[in-house]
Amino acid sequence: MISETDEAKGTVIAEGRAEYDARLDDAISRVMIVADSDRIVQAALKLAKDLNDLILIRAQRGPGRIPNEDVHRLRAAEQDFANVVRLELAHASLR
């Protein structure tokens, strides 16, 4: 594990991780470009962080050993992102 610093995000050393990080960075960049809402961007960043946390936990503990509360936290972040996008899009359509 390489820890997060002011200059760089932390990363889990895992096979295939560089491609995953590039795809995630690309997705977050696209959200930042197209989202007309700081709330959407913040929800996307939280989802990405929670996903990275889950990857770290799996790397540390191994397959099938991720605590339920960590899985639930990720699922809640996914749901929060979807809800924020839905509400922001509904609000935008009223403008």
Rank of each mutant, 00 (worst) to 15 (best):
E7G: 13
Q42M: 11
K9A: 15
D21Q: 11
V12D: 01
A14H: 10
I13R: 13
D6W: 12
L56S: 11
A8T: 03
R86L: 09
M1I: 10
P63N: 10
S37Y: 00
D80N: 11
Q42R: 15
L51N: 06
K49P: 02
E7I: 15
V41R: 05
D80H: 09
D53G: 01
R30Y: 03
I13G: 03
N52S: 13
S3G: 08
G16S: 06
T11N: 05
M32A: 12
D38F: 05
E69M: 02
L45F: 01
D6V: 14
Y20V: 09
L47F: 06
A48E: 01
D53V: 09
V41I: 14
D38G: 15
L24A: 12
V34K: 07
L54V: 02
P63V: 11
G16C: 09
R30D: 09
N83C: 11
E78Q: 14
D21C: 05
K49H: 12
A35W: 11
K9M: 14
D53Y: 03
E88C: 02
L56G: 12
S93F: 03
R17Y: 09
L54R: 03
I57W: 00
P63C: 11
R17L: 08
L87P: 05
V31P: 06
E19V: 12
L87T: 10
A48T: 01
I33D: 08
K49D: 07
A76W: 09
E88F: 06
M32Y: 00
N68F: 09
S29C: 04
E69A: 11
Q42W: 03
D6M: 14
G10T: 00
G62S: 08
D38Q: 14
D6A: 15
T11R: 13
N52R: 15
L74Q: 08
F81P: 13
V84D: 06
E15N: 04
A82D: 15
N52M: 12
D70L: 04
I33G: 02
D26F: 05
F81G: 10
V71W: 02
L24H: 01
G62T: 06
D80A: 04
A59C: 05
D25A: 10
A27F: 08
R65K: 14
V41K: 04
A82Q: 07
R58T: 03
L45H: 04
Q42C: 08
N52T: 12
Q42T: 11
V12F: 08
D6E: 07
I57D: 04
